[in-house]
Simulated assay, not measured.
Amino acid sequence: MTTPRHEFYETDDKLTLSIFDKGADPEQVKVSFEPRKFTYSHGDKTLVLEPLKGQIDPAKSDYTVGKVKVEVRLIKMAQGRWGALVGDAPDPLSSFPTSAAPTTTKVRKHKNWDGITKEILNQEKGITSDQDPNAGGDAAVNEFFQKLYADADEDTRRAMMKSYSESGGTTLSTNWDEVKKGTVEVKPPEGSEWKKWAA
């Protein structure tokens, strides 16, 4: 049994779970919704989420099988963000009857920044970092510099480290002959001024 890769994003009333199971056969996919448990199985792939961080409405929750992923919509019984799929957080519904869920109750408002970041990066995937070094946000830029550093010789690496640390992150040089002559100056972007943080 293998666990398929999955990720989620959420709103106050719904959590959308993407299960990456390329070419899943809709006839073979089995999904089970319970108030605090979700189960997915297809062939040798199984995903069990228990206990869910909050309670869901099994009757309203549903899913669709796509070519690349299975998208599951978990409808929350109580408004609010979970921040995670599973957890032992007390069920917000256990303290009051389901029929009279007070709308004034604040369930931990907690943005799922990872999910938001992934969503933004997924939207930007149309352009690759080879076509535009700025595509894909910070992750692509970091990947570019990691590759540059990994493929560099010892002098180039030394130049990169020295120039970056001495300039406070405003300069990155690969020329060791230039950098080794002295301290690398701080060069803030045009229109900005450099201020040293007080310790």
Score class of each variant (00 low, 15 high):
Met1Leu: 15
Met1Asn: 08
Thr2Ser: 15
Thr2Tyr: 12
Thr3Tyr: 04
Thr3Leu: 01
Pro4Asn: 08
Arg5Asp: 13
His6Lys: 03
His6Gly: 04
His6Trp: 14
His6Val: 04
His6Asp: 01
Glu10Thr: 11
Asp12Glu: 15
Lys14Leu: 13
Ser18Met: 14
Asp21Cys: 06
Lys22Glu: 12
Lys22Gly: 02
Lys22Ala: 15
Ala24Leu: 02
Pro26Asn: 15
Pro26His: 12
Val29His: 10
Ser32Lys: 14
Phe33Ile: 14
Lys37Trp: 11
Tyr40Thr: 12
Ser41Trp: 02
Gly43Thr: 07
Gly43Phe: 03
Thr46Ser: 15
Thr46Arg: 15
Thr46Tyr: 07
Leu47Lys: 02
Val48Ala: 07
Pro51Asp: 01
Leu52Met: 05
Lys53Pro: 01
Gln55Thr: 05
Gln55Phe: 02
Ile56Lys: 00
Ile56Trp: 00
Asp57Gln: 08
Ala59Pro: 07
Ala59Tyr: 10
Ser61Val: 11
Thr64Trp: 10
Thr64Ala: 14
Thr64Gln: 15
Gly66Glu: 03
Lys67Thr: 09
Leu74His: 12
Leu74Trp: 00
Leu74Asp: 01
Ile75Cys: 06
Ile75Ala: 01
Met77Arg: 02
Met77Pro: 02
Ala78Gln: 12
Gln79Leu: 10
Val86Phe: 03
Ala89Met: 08
Pro90Asp: 07
Ser94Ala: 15
Thr98Glu: 05
Thr104Ser: 11
Thr104Gly: 04
Thr104Arg: 00
Lys106Val: 14
Lys106Phe: 09
Val107Ala: 13
Val107Phe: 02
Val107Arg: 14
Val107Trp: 04
Arg108Asp: 04
Arg108Val: 09
Asn112Phe: 09
Ile116Thr: 13
Ile116Arg: 14
Thr117Asp: 06
Thr117Lys: 08
Glu119Cys: 09
Leu121Trp: 11
Asn122Leu: 14
Gln123Ser: 09
Gly126Pro: 05
Ile127Phe: 10
Ile127Glu: 10
Thr128Gly: 12
Ser129Cys: 06
Asp130Val: 03
Asp130Ile: 02
Asp130Tyr: 12
Asp132Phe: 11
Asn134Asp: 09
Asn134Val: 06
Ala135His: 11
Gly136Trp: 06
Ala139Gln: 13
Asn142Met: 13
Glu143Gln: 11
Glu143Leu: 10
Phe145Pro: 02
Phe145Tyr: 10
Phe145Ser: 11
Lys147Pro: 00
Leu148Lys: 00
Leu148Phe: 07
Ala150Cys: 08
Ala152Phe: 00
Arg158Gly: 05
Lys162Phe: 08
Ser165Leu: 09
Ser165Ala: 04
Glu166Trp: 02
Ser167Val: 01
Thr170Ala: 06
Thr170His: 02
Thr171Asn: 03
Leu172Asp: 01
Ser173Leu: 06
Thr174Gly: 09
Asn175Ser: 15
Asp177Phe: 00
Val179Cys: 05
Lys180Ile: 07
Lys181Gly: 10
Val184Phe: 03
Val186Gly: 07
Lys187Arg: 14
Lys187Ser: 09
Pro189Ala: 07
Ser192Thr: 07
Trp194Glu: 07
Trp194Gly: 06
Trp197Cys: 08
Trp197Ala: 14
Trp197Lys: 06
Ala199Val: 10
